[in-house]
């Protein structure tokens, strides 16, 4: 099987649509026959990352590459960037505004959740330019 690649544009101004890309990836992985555990790991990480694109970055792009061995995800945005990635990785640390909290997110669990469910996670961020996040989940 050759690798399957998927691309999504995530709009930054519509919170109600946040999660559409992750839902689509979930259905694709299910159809391809990946195990429920594998599907769950990928989509939880991707959903949190997609929410982050909407909450923090004014939207962005998601590229997904699916192979029998792994799922690779790259999320790119032109948002404000993350000044201190190490701090942002701590559970409970959040810079989200109160209105995001009233939507059920912004408790400082997003990045820790992503780390928990992925095998590899890398963040390249430049303040004022944007952030790229690389995620990998192995299929084992």
């Amino acid at each position: 099987m050759s690798n399957l690649t998927l691309h999504y544009n995530v709009p930054g101004d519509d919170f109600t649509r946040a999660g559409e890309a992750s839902g689509s990836v979930k259905r694709t992985l299910k159809d391809l026959g990946f195990s429920p555990e594998m599907v769950r790991k990928v989509v939880i990480a991707l959903y949190e990352a997609e929410i982050n694109l909407v909450i923090h970055a004014g939207g962005g792009e998601i590229d997904v590459e699916i192979s029998p061995e792994s799922v690779d995800m790259v999320l790119t945005d032109k948002g404000p960037g993350i000044p201190d990635v190490e701090m942002a990785m701590k559970e409970g640390y959040s810079t989200a505004p109160d209105n995001v909290r009233s939507l059920g997110f912004g408790a400082g669990m997003g990045l820790p959740n992503i780390k928990k469910y992925t095998d590899e996670m890398k963040i390249d961020s430049v303040v004022g330019e944007g952030t790229t996040m690389y995620l990998k989940v192995y299929n084992n």
Binding site: F15, T16, A18, G19, S22, G23, K26, P36, R40, V43, I44, Y47, I51, L103, G104, F105
Partner: peptide, 17 residues
């Protein structure tokens, strides 16, 4: 069970089966 009412509650449920 949730007291929060917005589309992300349904999406969260979707992601978690």
């Amino acid at each position: 069970l949730s007291g929060l009412v917005n589309p992300q509650v349904v999406r969260t449920a979707e992601m978690m089966d």
